[in-house]
């Protein structure tokens, strides 16, 4: 499954904001982290702001801050702001053949599973997974012990 670049940027950004909900983060900081243009990212962040997921803060130290509910916002909600993962391009033209319909039913099955998966994972769940995967800091006392 491949998501569009804007969709991926939106997901990366929402993860940053959901991890640090009290921080106001400039677009440039996220753009640098993911190696994308700040201009492109700003468009994505504006869309997230229009959806009520981010607050835009103006001024010298402006940026964006998380304004959603991480325990409620699912990955599917973010994705659907940018693309319809169930939408498929039309076939070669004319009325669909038996083959096209048979293949379409398989693709539709995959789409339904993908939607159910994205719709069941909230930002909060993903943030927690991320935290669990991060190597735990070893205390200096423990690190000093002989192996």
């Amino acid at each position: 499954m491949k998501l569009q670049k804007s969709t991926l940027l939106a997901l990366y950004s929402m993860m940053e904001f959901a991890r640090y909900p009290d921080r106001q983060i400039p677009a440039t900081e996220i753009a640098d982290k993911y190696g994308v243009s700040a201009h492109h990212l700003s468009k994505v962040l504006r869309e997230l702001g229009r959806a009520g997921l981010l607050d835009s803060l103006r001024g010298v130290r402006g940026g964006y801050r998380f304004s959603g509910n991480a325990k409620r916002v699912t990955l599917l909600e973010v994705i659907e702001l940018f693309e319809d993962i169930g939408a498929r391009p039309d076939g070669p033209g004319g009325e669909a053949s038996d083959t096209e319909r048979a293949l379409a039913s398989v693709l539709s099955e995959i789409d339904e599973i993908a939607k159910a998966t994205f719709g069941s994972i909230t930002l909060d769940v993903l943030v927690k997974q991320l935290e669990m995967r991060r190597p735990r800091a070893v205390s200096t006392e423990l690190a000093a012990l002989p192996v």
């Binding site: 699912t74 339904e112 599973i113 159910a116 998966t117 719709g119 069941s120 994972i121 909230t122 909060d124 769940v125 997974q129």
Partner: peptide, 18 residues
């Protein structure tokens, strides 16, 4: 059931995956 978003989300929140 894949349309049972509430229960799917619950199990996900408990760390369960596909």
């Amino acid at each position: 059931a894949r349309d049972n978003a509430l229960v799917l989300s619950f199990f996900r929140s408990q760390g369960m995956m596909a």
